[in-house]
Design a protein around this nucleic acid. Structure first.
Length: 288
DNA sequence: CCGTTAACCTGAGAGC
DNA sequence: TGCTCTCAGGTTAACG
């Protein structure tokens, strides 16, 4: 589900609604996520204050009191929903809220109950995970394993050219490689390469300066546009209030197999090909 | 070191 | 209706 823009949309509403609130109770219904939720998880969160909600790449970062942190990764199908408390310990429950959202309630694996509001983590495929981090040093160490986000000044021409040197791997795979650049996923990789008129199969070492510049510019552009439109909702992405994003309505290539290329004066038809087990959409005519 | 593949899961939709 | 098959926003261990 979630690439950087979707995670950012979730972050914004989470931060607005749970910042400065204290964790009253934590319920773990199913600890078998991608990584098993550690047994100390509940005690770690309990009674801590959520200072703010941050994000790096596709991770949500709960900044907690005592300089501690909780990372949340949404995997493929994770969503986070906020539920308000009506009266004392009486949260708006199944009947109204869940039918309204058509949420598969059985996949609510974790609940974090705060003052007047609770955070519910729902994830049918269980590819997402939680991670507790005990100090700032450990957080930085963990995040340093990832490449810069496209917005980072380190994501520049020199960086791309030196990274691509002698690399046989195709550019599509590089955009998905979180050690190279973090935050881009399968949808936005296709979109970025389309705008840049670069063929996803192109080997990285063959890319020219101009190509790299286009990739840098369009990576930022695509992600920012997507954030502004509330992310992309293909199957089940929803923000914390159960509302879908809109970026999928403006896809230029993703999910457009067999349709006309959207570049001006190009007569191409969008193709779908499997590259490294991921669907990839592109125009064979204008993406060289 | 480099690049690719399979595996982790559930559910939706297509085709028969 | 129901069965089988394919596919889905991510990551990573294991392999050649």
């Amino acid at each position: 589900m979630p690439e950087l823009p979707e995670v950012e949309v979730v972050r914004q509403s989470l931060d607005k609604k749970i910042k400065q609130k204290k964790v009253k109770k934590v319920i773990v219904r199913n600890r078998n996520l991608r990584f098993k939720i550690p047994y100390g998880f509940i005690n770690f969160l309990q009674n801590k204050k959520i200072i703010k909600v941050g994000r790096f790449s596709k991770y949500l970062i709960l900044h907690l009191s005592n300089n501690t942190f909780c990372l949340i990764h949404l995997g493929m199908s994770g969503t986070i929903h906020l539920i308000y408390e009506k009266k004392n310990n009486n949260f708006i429950t199944n009947a109204s809220f869940y039918s309204y959202l058509s949420l598969p309630k059985k996949h609510n694996h974790v609940e974090i109950i705060l003052e007047k509001i609770k955070v519910v983590y729902n994830d049918p495929r269980r590819f997402g995970f939680f991670q507790i981090i005990k100090n700032l040093e450990s957080l930085n160490k963990k995040l340093s394993l990832y490449g810069p986000e496209p917005f980072d000044t380190r994501f520049n021409l020199d960086y791309l050219l030196s990274f691509f040197k002698k690399k046989e791997k195709n550019i599509k795979n590089f955009l998905l490689d979180q050690g190279f650049v973090s935050g881009i996923g399968n949808i936005y990789a296709s979109e970025i390469l389309f705008l840049s008129k670069i063929n996803p199969n192109k080997k990285a070492y063959l890319l020219k300066k101009k190509d790299c510049q286009k990739i840098i510019i369009n990576s930022k552009k695509v992600l920012i546009d997507a954030i502004e439109r509330g992310g992309s909702s293909i199957i089940n992405f929803k923000n914390t209030f159960g509302v879908k994003g809109n970026f999928q309505k403006t896809f230029k290539v993703y999910d457009r197999e067999g349709l006309k290329c959207k570049h001006k004066s190009c007569s191409g038809i969008i193709q779908k090909k499997n590259i490294s087990n991921r669907s990839t959409f592109f125009c064979n005519i204008c993406q060289k």
